Simulated scan of single mutants.
Amino acid sequence: METKTCPKCGEEKPTDDFYFQRRACKPCVREDQRRFRDSQPDYNHARNLQRRYGLSVDEYQTLLANQNFACPICEVEISNTIAYKGKRPVAVDHNHDTGDVRGILCSMCNLMLGHARENTSILYRAIVYLSERGAYASKK
């Protein structure tokens, strides 16, 4: 079995413990990546906002401010931060046909729209259904 010495940790390891065209061993590369992610908590979210929705962090913050930092459907408070440490408490709502961003929703409301296939007829029938059957009305 061929071995190679990692320049970061100095240990001699099998070549299988190295990524293709990387000098450092896999554990050292993963540790570097973890340290980078921990030092830049908003990095991935900001990059995803730009790549997926064409939004900068400032535009995202403006959307939230225009909504008074609340979900426009259920009015639950939405945090003023984009860092979520692996959790997704909010979602960027967008038109799946045009890609246009409509706003920032809480996860539950975003799921509701998705499960209704963004079809207003389905949502209207759901309102009628709940109205006719004595729906629970939350106290605000």
Score class of each variant (00 low, 15 high):
Glu11Val: 06
Leu123Tyr: 11
Tyr129Thr: 08
Asp58Arg: 09
Ser39Gln: 14
Phe20Val: 12
Asp32His: 10
Asn95Glu: 09
Tyr19Ser: 05
Pro27Glu: 07
Ser79Pro: 07
Leu55Trp: 01
Glu12Leu: 06
Ile104Glu: 00
Lys13Asp: 00
Asp42Thr: 15
Ile127Ser: 12
Tyr124Cys: 04
Gly103Lys: 01
Glu2Ala: 15
Val57Asn: 03
Ile104Gln: 00
Pro41Val: 11
Thr62Gln: 14
Glu12Ser: 15
Gln21Ala: 12
Val92Lys: 00
Arg34Ser: 05
Ile82Cys: 09
Tyr84Phe: 08
Cys9Ser: 01
Asn80Met: 03
Cys106Phe: 07
Lys13Ala: 03
Lys4Ser: 06
Arg37Asn: 09
Leu123Asn: 13
Arg23Met: 05
Asn68Ile: 05
Lys4Gln: 15
Thr120Glu: 11
Glu12Gly: 11
Gly10Pro: 10
Phe20Gln: 11
Arg133Asp: 00
Tyr60Ala: 03
Ser107Trp: 09
Glu75Arg: 11
Met1Thr: 14
Tyr129Ala: 08
Ile122Ala: 12
Tyr124Pro: 00
Thr62Cys: 04
Lys87Asp: 10
Lys85Cys: 06
Ile82Phe: 06
Phe18Leu: 05
Ala83Lys: 14
Ser56Ala: 08
Arg52Thr: 12
Gly54Ile: 02
Glu75Pro: 00
Tyr124Glu: 12
Leu123Arg: 14
Leu105Ser: 09
Leu63Asp: 02
Gly103Glu: 00
Gln21Arg: 14
Lys87Met: 13
Phe18Trp: 07
Asp93Gly: 05
Gly103Cys: 02
Tyr136Arg: 10
Arg51Ser: 10
Asp38Pro: 03
Lys139Leu: 06
Arg51Gly: 03
Glu2Lys: 15
Ile104Trp: 02
Glu59Gly: 07
Gly10Phe: 07
Ser56Met: 03
Ala126Cys: 10
Ala83Val: 15
Leu113His: 11
Arg30His: 10
Arg52Ala: 09
Pro7Ala: 06
Asp58Met: 05
Gln33Thr: 10
Arg35Asp: 11
Lys13Leu: 13
Lys26Met: 13
Gly54His: 02
Ser138Ile: 15
Ser39His: 10
Ala91Gly: 08
Tyr136Cys: 03
Asp100Glu: 15
Asp58Leu: 06
Arg51Leu: 05
Thr15Asp: 00
Glu12Cys: 11
His96Cys: 11
His96Asp: 09
Pro14Trp: 04
Lys8Gln: 12
Ala135Met: 05
Ala24Tyr: 07
Leu55Gln: 01
Pro7Asn: 07
Arg117His: 14
Asp58Ile: 06
Thr98Ile: 04
Asn44Pro: 02
Val92Tyr: 00
Thr98Met: 04
Pro27Arg: 06
Leu111Trp: 12
